[in-house]
Simulated assay, not measured.
Amino acid sequence: MTSFLTISLDFELHWGRFDKTRLRDYLEYYQETLQVVPAILEMFEHYGVHATWATVGSLMADNEEEWRAYMPTVLPQYKYERYSAYRWFDAQPQIWEEALFAPHLVRQLIDCPGQELGSHTFAHFYTCENGGSAKAFRADLKAAKTIAKSKFGQELKSLVFPRNQINEAALAISKEEGFDTVRTNPQDWYWKHTVDENLIKRLFRTGDTLVSLGQKTSYQAPQRNGEELLGLPASRLLRPFRKGSLFNQKRISRIKEEMEAAAKSGEVYHLWWHPHNFGHYPKENLRCLEDILQNFSVLKDTYGMESRSMGEF
């Protein structure tokens, strides 16, 4: 039975972090990210790796004027305003557009063989937060699909939910809006209900990158049942390199071991991360990624492992 390496990237720049960090404190971080994305694409092409770039629709705009032109007709009215990208944007005394808009990189990934332009919603929509209504979520997905189609001629078919917040209502709307494939969460208890975060869950997620604390990370390739959405569970988050950490190589070795187990058993291994995770220590992070992709090359030659984007399932 054929095994698969699947990679999905949450491509968001500051749209995915506006409620957590101050933009002006991370300008160099995003500048590095803009340089890292082409390097990742070059590496993917070299190793024949297909990937899904789940891209925030807002990032596809050229500037603020165009972003506002593509904004949804219905905006979320979150109970906590800090979760609204629109409220955040309007409250900023100064905006650094290079940390928010990168259509040139979207064009590069579309032109790179085997890369799929997916969706991470239009404005990093939180489906499980109070005030993220069904009507607003539908409008958000329509806006994401519109900008991808009108600017890049792309039909978005694969979706990754921001902060991995998933519920049945959001899945139903995603299907109705034309999505075929979504990334879902692992079945381990510390990955379920990601809106209810706590220290214990975070500790278990971190610990599981070093030693096995949960279920097996690979799985049999799922089959689509009629017109239903196809769910592809995440296997592992590729955590970024940390200076001085004794566990950098241990985390990479664990990923390689899990990949080999998937290759031997004919299963899917789904790796994911954010491109901006490479914003600090980009050279070290790229070396870690190449170590993983070299391992994929060995598994391809030895066990016939293939690379598939989410949409290719």
Rank of each mutant, 00 (worst) to 15 (best):
E257Y: 03
P275K: 11
I252C: 11
H120R: 10
P38E: 05
R236H: 12
S8V: 08
P93T: 12
K145Y: 02
F278H: 07
T127W: 06
T6M: 05
L171W: 00
A54F: 00
E177Q: 13
D90G: 02
R239I: 09
T181G: 11
A221Y: 02
P186V: 03
E290N: 05
S212E: 12
V49D: 01
H193S: 14
Y190T: 04
Y80G: 11
I252K: 04
S84W: 04
E290P: 01
P103Q: 08
S58Y: 03
F204H: 07
G48D: 12
W88T: 12
D196P: 02
A169N: 15
I95G: 08
Q223D: 07
I200E: 13
S150G: 05
D25I: 03
F125G: 12
N248L: 12
L199K: 05
Y26H: 15
L41D: 00
G266P: 08
E306I: 03
R287A: 15
G231I: 00
T206V: 10
Y126D: 04
K145E: 10
D188L: 09
K201D: 05
R183T: 15
A144E: 06
L289E: 02
G16A: 05
A91N: 12
E168C: 03
L286W: 03
W96Q: 11
G266V: 11
P162M: 11
G266A: 14
V37S: 09
S3H: 07
N164S: 14
E64Q: 14
I40T: 05
Y78W: 07
A262Y: 02
A39V: 03
Q187M: 09
E32F: 05
E45H: 07
E177D: 06
K79C: 06
I173M: 14
E12N: 03
P93F: 02
D10E: 09
R242E: 15
W272T: 13
E168N: 11
F18W: 03
G214D: 01
Q154C: 15
G244H: 01
F161T: 01
R251D: 06
R287P: 02
L238W: 06
T209H: 08
T127M: 13
P72D: 10
V56Q: 04
R22G: 13
S307H: 05
E176S: 10
P113M: 05
L105W: 04
V36L: 07
L41C: 10
K142T: 14
Y70F: 14
D188T: 00
W272E: 15
I166S: 14
D90K: 08
A221D: 00
I40C: 13
Q165F: 10
K20G: 12
P233V: 01
F4H: 15
G226C: 08
S297R: 15
E64N: 06
T6V: 13
R205E: 13
P240Q: 12
H46G: 00
I7D: 01
A136Y: 04
W189H: 03
L34D: 11
C128L: 11
G244M: 08
A263G: 10
K216Y: 00
K145F: 01
L271D: 14
L13C: 02
S297L: 08
T55G: 07
E267T: 03
R202M: 14
